[in-house]
Amino acid sequence: MKKICSASSIMEAQIMLDLLDHNCISAKLFNEHAQGGLGDIPFTHAYPEVWVIRDSDFERGQAIVNEFEKTPVETRVVFCRACHEENPFNFQVCWQCGAGLELPSSREGRV
């Protein structure tokens, strides 16, 4: 078993775990509950860690994680026509009222 990366949050670690799983790479998550120990242990020891089970999957897994880490963060928003609530640009349904946001042509230029 080899450590592939440390994640900045449980959510990020879970996304990496899912990406690896979708590519048929078995992996485990460690330190998922360690953030509760912050203050008693160094913060760098509390980061969630993703480890591949089979050493032979390490390089392929590393490439998948590296590709994920290069993904740009989307900061644009779209406003719901029904309730005028702000939603992340990549949402298809308003988180507030459930109305559809899936009109790609209307999203262009809306920030």
Rank of each mutant, 00 (worst) to 15 (best):
M1K: 04
M1H: 09
M1I: 04
I4S: 02
C5G: 01
S6W: 00
S6L: 05
S6Q: 13
A7Y: 02
A7I: 03
A7K: 01
S9E: 04
S9H: 03
I10V: 15
M11I: 12
M11S: 13
M11H: 11
M11G: 09
Q14L: 14
Q14Y: 07
I15S: 02
I15M: 10
D18Q: 14
D18V: 06
L19M: 15
L19N: 11
L19C: 13
L20I: 10
L20T: 04
D21T: 13
D21R: 15
N23F: 02
N23K: 13
N23R: 11
N23T: 02
C24N: 15
I25V: 13
I25H: 06
L29D: 02
L29E: 02
L29Q: 03
F30L: 11
E32R: 02
E32M: 05
A34F: 08
Q35V: 13
G36F: 10
G36I: 08
G39R: 07
D40P: 00
D40Y: 13
D40R: 03
F43D: 11
T44G: 01
T44N: 12
T44E: 12
H45R: 09
H45P: 00
A46V: 03
Y47M: 15
Y47G: 00
P48A: 05
P48G: 04
P48N: 05
P48E: 03
P48T: 05
E49Q: 14
E49C: 06
V50W: 03
V50L: 11
V52G: 04
R54P: 00
D55V: 09
S56F: 03
D57F: 05
D57K: 05
D57Y: 05
F58S: 04
E59H: 10
R60E: 12
R60Y: 07
R60I: 07
R60V: 10
Q62T: 06
A63H: 08
A63E: 14
A63F: 00
I64H: 05
N66A: 15
E67I: 00
E69A: 07
E69H: 10
K70D: 07
K70H: 09
K70Y: 01
K70I: 01
T71Q: 13
T71R: 13
P72V: 12
V73D: 08
E74N: 13
E74K: 09
T75D: 08
R76L: 11
R76V: 01
R76Y: 04
R76S: 12
V77M: 10
V77Y: 06
V77K: 14
V77G: 00
V78F: 13
V78Y: 09
C80S: 08
C80M: 10
A82N: 15
H84K: 13
E86K: 15
N87Y: 05
N87F: 03
P88G: 06
P88I: 04
F89I: 08
F89W: 14
N90Q: 12
F91H: 14
Q92T: 12
V93M: 06
C94I: 09
W95D: 08
W95Q: 12
Q96T: 05
C97E: 06
A99Y: 11
G100Q: 06
G100D: 14
L103P: 00
L103I: 11
L103Q: 11
P104Q: 05
P104A: 09
R107T: 02
E108Q: 13
E108T: 11
G109H: 03
G109L: 04
G109F: 01
R110F: 08
R110V: 14
V111Q: 12
